[in-house]
Design a protein around this nucleic acid. Sequence first.
DNA 1: CTGTTAGCGCATTCAC
DNA 2: GTGAATGCGCTAACAG
Lengths: 341, 341
Amino acid sequence: MQSTVTLRDVAQAAKVSIATASRALAGEGLTSRSTEARLRRIAAELGYRPNALARGLKTRTTRLVGLVVHNLTNASFRVLAEVVQRRLRAEGYQTILCITADDPEQEAEIIATLADQRVDGLIICPTGHNGARLAALDSNGTPVTCVVRRDEMVEMETVLAADPEGAYAGTRHLLELGHRRIGLIVGRRETTSGRERLSGYRRALEEAGIAFDPSLVHAGPYEPETGLAGCRQLLDRADRPTALFVANHESALGVLRGLAERDLLVPDDISLLCYEDMPGFAWQRPAISVVDSGATAMADLAADRLLQRLRPNAAPPAETAREYRIGARLIQRHSCRPVAP
Amino acid sequence: MQSTVTLRDVAQAAKVSIATASRALAGEGLTSRSTEARLRRIAAELGYRPNALARGLKTRTTRLVGLVVHNLTNASFRVLAEVVQRRLRAEGYQTILCITADDPEQEAEIIATLADQRVDGLIICPTGHNGARLAALDSNGTPVTCVVRRDEMVEMETVLAADPEGAYAGTRHLLELGHRRIGLIVGRRETTSGRERLSGYRRALEEAGIAFDPSLVHAGPYEPETGLAGCRQLLDRADRPTALFVANHESALGVLRGLAERDLLVPDDISLLCYEDMPGFAWQRPAISVVDSGATAMADLAADRLLQRLRPNAAPPAETAREYRIGARLIQRHSCRPVAP
DNA sequence: CTGTTAGCGCATTCAC
DNA sequence: GTGAATGCGCTAACAG
């Protein structure tokens, strides 16, 4: 039992006022060299640690930031959590991780609680139903940075993947290999990524002069089951697609399963391209080609942006919130092959 | 700009003292029914939200708990993060998630920072090098619950998987299918799980009257590479094992890869059993049998234990810290088969 | 049942 | 360069 050594204890031990102690330990040359050193030593000996609550109450800054995501299963969120956490800690911030399950009500409650804790900032993948709350927070001086999804209701600093371009590049790649019937498994239209990836796919087809065939598209929730269902649906067609573009990342497992069910070999029988890289894809046999959406870069940029606005000096309130896009990259491995002539 | 409405604003608006306002909103019948209702209404109208910092400073309780894990890649940690987060939030606690990367120094810093924030409690998978700090925290009134790994240096409440029994059960299963040469890929001896799973494996062999052959064991860090290396090593033997028990969970990907390299079919050419279930295993083709170490149950129990000690009434300081074990379960899918006669 | 008074631990203004 | 005093927002005695 030793804890709870306060600034006053340090001051008493050093026979100075508590104010001096505070200044010495702040260490910005507000005290004499000697007392500063002395106080520092005594504080260390006593094991003094400033009470973050008291400090926060006084300074109105907690060095806490909230990170709000839908889950930790999705690879992007996982990367986001790890990267943001690390980046912020390097700058002396603690990360409070919260999970909304993509539920607006939970999200609302979480935002409120985070505000109660007086977090200094917030990085969030919004559900899209609490934009007003986020905007209020932001304009009250708590910077909010959105990631992965945009909240359509309101203008806010947002870091997104370049999904239209990524899906375009992926489809294009397949097209260049000679594929004409490309099945697409994608997220629902209600989500930014679902919509944007579909649009990239369509644009690539159009440019290639291929008519868009809605029956080649299977949209569904972000779950393996979607992949399995989509796979079956597409494979049951008389004119089976020669390539599958799995642009709903969580579906990949289901698609792999569906392909195995039909004893279809990748890439001999069918080409396979996925969206969003993850460790499993590279270890797969054959290793699966992907459009890497750049989760790490997104996380880093989100951290950068927030950190930037967190710095005391800066803070031009909002020259209209900017949107950032992280470019996608095609990573060719061994799951795509030219269509047989 | 509306924020920062304080208790005083509410009190003034209601023309009562700030203390009365506090009591009314606390709502434990310390005020008259009518004023309570009135204050509650006014507070809502004004959008009053208590300042968690001020409250924490006063009450010495923050409803913050720290969750410290090595990473978010490991399935157990992911489950831990999701479950603990959800369970605690249901009880009004926020979770501060921190990642140590299994590095004692980072861990030490994290523990200190968490203490600075005056977290009410801590759930941690310890590196094993900061036991003293954890013990100090605990005996200072901040309950600490360890999970997944035990800190050998010190007695503390700990929730672990029943790894010896799990490994025993898994090995036993393979034995009962007639396998005699069972390759084991496992974590390093320095880790609790590495040691314990190895011991379970050995015990099962002994009971079956089979001599332990160290060359059938490949121990290594928790990475896919370990699986690949182990797989190659074991498969290169003249007397190739007829079954592989992958008890270092992260290695599974590498093992799958290694098997594919050699064009070995599971379960026809070789049986495969993994430790720790994860979504991918069930979706694999063939679906992979596993010893489920019960990550969810562990997370729930850890949350239960901490919550229990967080309740105001309870707190018999420490009748010698207890250790809990979550039983493992064998889940049979389609990756194991009797050895050919 | 309600108001007054005192801090929680710290940073900071104002004197000296 | 240092000390005394003030208050951040809230809860908890202590009176009335």
